[in-house]
């Protein structure tokens, strides 16, 4: 396991290096004149040139690339062009907000989806199974900003049950904060329930049909123990893999949801930084999301490796 872990972490570092390179390419593909961007369209050219000089925008590409790699290691990207303060002080509050939403969404989605998936697998081809699969497919094919605005209108405005804005007052306790996050989290439940339930269902069906399950049943173990010890362990591997890969997206992809709930998370921040050509913030944001993605897939792989020792042999690519 230690050797597997070491290899897996080393590979992640290689990926991180590649990611930094990709980010560098992206930033240099975008039309770039940070000095003009900061000074505004009316500033004299001398001011712009001086700014570009100070920001190092005129340095040779190779030198700029080296600087980005160094920044990646130290995670110090200097000041954001747009906000005029250190990138970290802009990025981390947004990261914290995103993390809260992702945590609550997973907390609500994962258990209920896994339960539904297993129920569907055990009652294959019954009405319950068909209902879970079809409703899941339907709700997961509607973009989260549509389900979000619908829930906001029905539960927030019409019925007045839940706060319509996701951001709680600054002095609010953790309970109030989660209450405010409930509506966007429910919108994510709508999107992910069907997906995770179907993955679990498929994994469970495979595990239920597998030889080791039959052996266990023949050995005379009772149903519950078979389910927990043998089936769950094998059935949940695809679920773990998929949840692991989706977390990165939840951190960076919820622009629509963040917009309609006025909840400025990482997704809006990165898209905004790209639009504003705020390169330090953009680079740091993309790398941060990349690191989150890698950590999550790594954890997922380790979990799978723990659940199924065989996976350690080929498992670097869950």
């Amino acid at each position: 396991m230690t050797r597997y872990l070491a290899r897996r972490v080393a590979l992640s570092l290689v990926t991180l290096f590649l990611l930094a390179t990709l980010v560098f390419v992206i930033v240099n593909v975008l039309p770039s004149d940070p000095g003009r961007r900061i000074a505004g369209p009316f500033a004299p050219q001398e001011t712009v040139d001086a700014l570009n000089e100070r920001l190092g925008a005129n340095d040779p590409l190779l030198q700029q690339y080296g600087r980005l790699l160094k920044n990646t290691v130290t995670f110090d990207f200097g000041d954001s062009f747009k906000y005029g303060k250190p990138v970290k002080s802009v990025l981390f509050p947004a990261l914290a907000r995103s993390a809260k939403l992702v945590f609550l969404a997973l907390l609500l989605t994962v258990p209920i989806s896994i339960l539904a998936g297993i129920v569907a697998a055990r009652r294959r081809n019954t009405l319950a199974d068909r209902l879970i699969v079809t409703v899941g497919l339907a709700s997961s094919s509607i973009p989260e900003f549509v389900s979000g605005v619908t829930l906001q209108f029905l539960l927030g405005v019409q019925l007045g049950w839940l706060p319509v804005l996701a951001l709680a007052p600054s002095d609010a306790g953790i309970g109030t904060q989660f209450k405010h996050l409930l509506l966007p989290a429910l919108a994510l439940v709508a999107v992910y329930f069907g997906y995770i339930a179907r993955i679990t269902r498929a994994g469970a069906i495979q595990a239920l049909d597998a030889d080791y399950t039959r052996t266990a049943v023949m050995k005379g173990l009772d149903n519950r123990r078979v389910l927990t010890r043998h089936v769950m362990r094998n059935a949940l591997q695809p679920t773990v893999a998929v949840v692991g890969t989706q977390i990165g997206y939840l951190f960076s992809g919820l622009i629509g949801l963040e917009l309609i709930f006025a909840y400025p998370g990482l997704g809006s921040l990165i898209v905004g930084a790209a639009g504003d050509k705020d390169y330090p913030l953009l680079e740091a944001g993309v790398l941060l999301v990349g690191i989150i993605y890698m950590i999550c897939t790594l954890l997922a792989d380790l979990l799978i490796a723990w659940m199924n020792p065989r996976a350690r042999l080929v498992g670097e690519f869950a």
Partner: peptide
């Protein structure tokens, strides 16, 4: 003063008494 990126969300916030 709370910030919104979207006029529509402001309307919702107003309707939701936020």
């Amino acid at each position: 003063v709370q910030f919104f990126d979207d006029l529509g969300t402001m309307v919702t916030a107003m309707q939701g008494n936020s």
